[in-house]
Amino acid sequence: MRPTTLCSLAVVTTLASALLGAVPASAETAAPGKDGWAPAPTPSFDYPAGARCDFPIHTEPIVDEVVKKVLVAHPDESPSKIAFKGDLVVRVTNTDTGAYYDADAGGSAIVDIHTDRSQLWHVVGPVLVGVGENNGNLPRGEYRIDGVYTLAISSTGYRTLNMFNGSTDDVCSRIG
Protein backbone atom coordinates (compact mmCIF):
# COMPACT_ATOMS: atom_id res chain seq x y z
CA MET A 1 0.00 0.00 0.00
CA ARG A 2 1.36 3.39 -1.02
CA PRO A 3 1.42 6.13 1.63
CA THR A 4 -0.88 9.10 1.08
CA THR A 5 0.92 11.81 -0.85
CA LEU A 6 0.38 15.49 -1.38
CA CYS A 7 -0.51 16.17 -5.01
CA SER A 8 -1.55 14.99 -8.38
CA LEU A 9 -0.73 16.76 -11.55
CA ALA A 10 -3.87 16.42 -13.37
CA VAL A 11 -4.50 18.86 -10.56
CA VAL A 12 -1.91 21.13 -12.22
CA THR A 13 -4.26 21.37 -15.16
CA THR A 14 -7.18 21.97 -12.81
CA LEU A 15 -5.46 24.68 -10.79
CA ALA A 16 -3.89 26.26 -13.86
CA SER A 17 -7.30 26.38 -15.50
CA ALA A 18 -8.81 27.77 -12.32
CA LEU A 19 -6.26 30.53 -12.00
CA LEU A 20 -6.14 31.31 -15.69
CA GLY A 21 -9.86 31.29 -16.32
CA ALA A 22 -12.06 28.20 -16.40
CA VAL A 23 -12.76 26.97 -12.87
CA PRO A 24 -14.87 23.86 -12.32
CA ALA A 25 -17.65 24.87 -9.92
CA SER A 26 -16.92 21.93 -7.63
CA ALA A 27 -13.31 23.04 -7.14
CA GLU A 28 -14.40 26.53 -6.08
CA THR A 29 -17.31 25.63 -3.83
CA ALA A 30 -15.94 22.70 -1.83
CA ALA A 31 -15.88 23.75 1.81
CA PRO A 32 -12.86 22.79 3.89
CA GLY A 33 -13.35 20.39 6.78
CA LYS A 34 -12.39 21.21 10.35
CA ASP A 35 -8.79 20.23 9.56
CA GLY A 36 -8.67 22.68 6.62
CA TRP A 37 -8.63 20.05 3.84
CA ALA A 38 -11.25 20.35 1.09
CA PRO A 39 -12.03 18.16 -1.93
CA ALA A 40 -10.18 19.15 -5.11
CA PRO A 41 -11.92 17.11 -7.80
CA THR A 42 -10.13 16.68 -11.09
CA PRO A 43 -12.32 17.39 -14.13
CA SER A 44 -12.29 15.41 -17.36
CA PHE A 45 -10.85 17.08 -20.45
CA ASP A 46 -11.13 16.54 -24.20
CA TYR A 47 -8.37 17.72 -26.52
CA PRO A 48 -8.61 17.70 -30.32
CA ALA A 49 -5.93 16.15 -32.51
CA GLY A 50 -2.82 18.32 -32.41
CA ALA A 51 -3.58 19.99 -29.07
CA ARG A 52 -1.59 17.46 -27.00
CA CYS A 53 -1.15 14.36 -29.17
CA ASP A 54 -1.41 13.83 -32.94
CA PHE A 55 -4.87 12.35 -32.27
CA PRO A 56 -7.77 13.44 -30.05
CA ILE A 57 -7.58 12.43 -26.39
CA HIS A 58 -9.92 12.31 -23.42
CA THR A 59 -8.62 12.46 -19.84
CA GLU A 60 -10.79 11.27 -16.98
CA PRO A 61 -10.02 10.49 -13.35
CA ILE A 62 -10.84 6.89 -12.44
CA VAL A 63 -9.52 7.24 -8.87
CA ASP A 64 -9.80 10.71 -7.37
CA GLU A 65 -9.22 11.18 -3.66
CA VAL A 66 -7.44 14.52 -3.98
CA VAL A 67 -7.89 17.18 -1.32
CA LYS A 68 -6.31 20.60 -0.96
CA LYS A 69 -5.40 22.86 1.93
CA VAL A 70 -4.65 26.56 1.68
CA LEU A 71 -1.50 27.12 3.73
CA VAL A 72 -1.05 30.86 3.11
CA ALA A 73 -3.37 33.48 1.64
CA HIS A 74 -2.70 36.82 -0.07
CA PRO A 75 -4.07 39.96 1.65
CA ASP A 76 -7.20 39.68 -0.53
CA GLU A 77 -7.68 36.15 0.91
CA SER A 78 -6.96 34.42 -2.41
CA PRO A 79 -4.64 31.39 -2.04
CA SER A 80 -0.90 32.06 -2.02
CA LYS A 81 0.36 28.58 -1.08
CA ILE A 82 -1.67 25.37 -1.40
CA ALA A 83 -0.88 21.75 -0.55
CA PHE A 84 -2.54 18.84 -2.36
CA LYS A 85 -2.74 15.22 -1.27
CA GLY A 86 -4.62 12.07 -2.20
CA ASP A 87 -4.53 9.31 -4.75
CA LEU A 88 -5.29 10.11 -8.37
CA VAL A 89 -5.29 7.86 -11.42
CA VAL A 90 -6.21 9.48 -14.73
CA ARG A 91 -7.25 7.45 -17.76
CA VAL A 92 -5.92 9.01 -20.97
CA THR A 93 -7.78 7.66 -24.00
CA ASN A 94 -7.05 7.95 -27.72
CA THR A 95 -10.61 8.66 -28.80
CA ASP A 96 -9.88 7.55 -32.39
CA THR A 97 -8.84 4.00 -31.42
CA GLY A 98 -10.04 3.51 -27.84
CA ALA A 99 -6.49 2.73 -26.65
CA TYR A 100 -5.90 4.06 -23.15
CA TYR A 101 -3.31 4.40 -20.42
CA ASP A 102 -4.07 4.72 -16.72
CA ALA A 103 -1.59 7.25 -15.37
CA ASP A 104 -0.80 7.29 -11.65
CA ALA A 105 -0.77 11.02 -11.00
CA GLY A 106 -0.55 10.85 -7.20
CA GLY A 107 2.59 12.78 -6.28
CA SER A 108 3.31 15.40 -3.61
CA ALA A 109 3.25 19.15 -4.19
CA ILE A 110 3.21 22.54 -2.58
CA VAL A 111 2.02 25.22 -5.00
CA ASP A 112 2.97 28.89 -4.76
CA ILE A 113 0.44 31.14 -6.47
CA HIS A 114 1.61 34.63 -7.33
CA THR A 115 -0.56 37.75 -7.65
CA ASP A 116 -0.13 37.70 -11.46
CA ARG A 117 -1.74 34.19 -11.33
CA SER A 118 1.51 32.44 -12.24
CA GLN A 119 2.33 29.32 -10.22
CA LEU A 120 5.38 27.43 -9.01
CA TRP A 121 4.85 23.75 -8.19
CA HIS A 122 7.37 22.01 -5.90
CA VAL A 123 6.78 18.34 -6.67
CA VAL A 124 7.92 14.92 -5.55
CA GLY A 125 6.34 11.97 -7.35
CA PRO A 126 4.23 11.35 -10.41
CA VAL A 127 1.91 13.89 -11.97
CA LEU A 128 0.22 14.31 -15.35
CA VAL A 129 1.03 17.44 -17.36
CA GLY A 130 -0.29 18.53 -20.72
CA VAL A 131 1.77 20.87 -22.87
CA GLY A 132 0.40 22.67 -25.91
CA GLU A 133 2.40 23.54 -29.03
CA ASN A 134 5.12 26.09 -28.17
CA ASN A 135 3.69 26.37 -24.65
CA GLY A 136 6.48 24.84 -22.57
CA ASN A 137 10.07 23.67 -22.44
CA LEU A 138 8.77 20.16 -23.27
CA PRO A 139 7.42 19.45 -26.74
CA ARG A 140 3.66 19.36 -27.27
CA GLY A 141 2.28 16.32 -25.49
CA GLU A 142 0.68 14.70 -22.46
CA TYR A 143 3.32 13.60 -19.96
CA ARG A 144 3.54 11.57 -16.80
CA ILE A 145 6.38 13.24 -14.93
CA ASP A 146 7.91 11.47 -11.94
CA GLY A 147 10.72 12.44 -9.60
CA VAL A 148 11.79 15.61 -7.81
CA TYR A 149 11.19 18.78 -9.80
CA THR A 150 9.56 22.16 -10.07
CA LEU A 151 7.00 23.18 -12.62
CA ALA A 152 6.55 26.89 -13.26
CA ILE A 153 3.33 27.92 -14.99
CA SER A 154 3.38 31.50 -16.24
CA SER A 155 0.32 33.74 -16.15
CA THR A 156 -0.18 32.84 -19.83
CA GLY A 157 0.04 29.10 -19.13
CA TYR A 158 3.59 28.48 -20.39
CA ARG A 159 5.04 25.48 -18.53
CA THR A 160 8.70 25.24 -17.54
CA LEU A 161 9.86 21.93 -16.07
CA ASN A 162 13.04 21.96 -13.98
CA MET A 163 13.87 18.31 -13.26
CA PHE A 164 16.25 17.65 -10.36
CA ASN A 165 15.96 13.86 -10.55
CA GLY A 166 13.40 11.81 -12.41
CA SER A 167 11.84 11.08 -15.75
CA THR A 168 9.17 12.08 -18.23
CA ASP A 169 6.93 9.55 -19.94
CA ASP A 170 5.21 10.53 -23.21
CA VAL A 171 1.67 9.22 -22.74
CA CYS A 172 0.82 9.99 -26.40
CA SER A 173 3.35 7.36 -27.53
CA ARG A 174 1.73 4.80 -25.22
CA ILE A 175 -1.71 5.15 -26.78
CA GLY A 176 -0.87 6.27 -30.32
Results as ranks from 00 to 15, higher is better:
133 E>Y: 10
152 A>E: 12
141 G>H: 05
154 S>N: 14
148 V>C: 02
137 N>D: 12
143 Y>A: 05
153 I>H: 08
133 E>S: 15
160 T>Y: 01
138 L>V: 03
151 L>Q: 11
150 T>I: 05
141 G>S: 05
156 T>C: 09
135 N>P: 09
150 T>K: 11
144 R>Q: 07
148 V>T: 03
156 T>M: 09
148 V>I: 11
148 V>E: 02
137 N>K: 12
151 L>G: 15
132 G>V: 00
148 V>S: 03
142 E>K: 02
132 G>A: 14
154 S>C: 11
140 R>E: 07
139 P>V: 01
136 G>F: 00
159 R>Y: 00
149 Y>P: 03
158 Y>D: 10
150 T>P: 07
153 I>S: 10
149 Y>K: 03
142 E>L: 14
139 P>M: 12
161 L>M: 10
134 N>D: 13
147 G>T: 08
139 P>Q: 12
157 G>E: 09
144 R>G: 02
134 N>G: 14
135 N>D: 14
141 G>R: 02
158 Y>M: 01
151 L>N: 12
146 D>V: 00
148 V>L: 05
146 D>S: 10
136 G>N: 09
161 L>K: 07
141 G>N: 07
148 V>G: 01
156 T>P: 06
139 P>F: 01
135 N>T: 13
138 L>W: 00
160 T>F: 00
138 L>A: 08
157 G>T: 11
147 G>A: 11
158 Y>S: 10
132 G>W: 00
160 T>I: 01
137 N>C: 03
158 Y>F: 08
138 L>N: 11
141 G>A: 09
135 N>L: 13
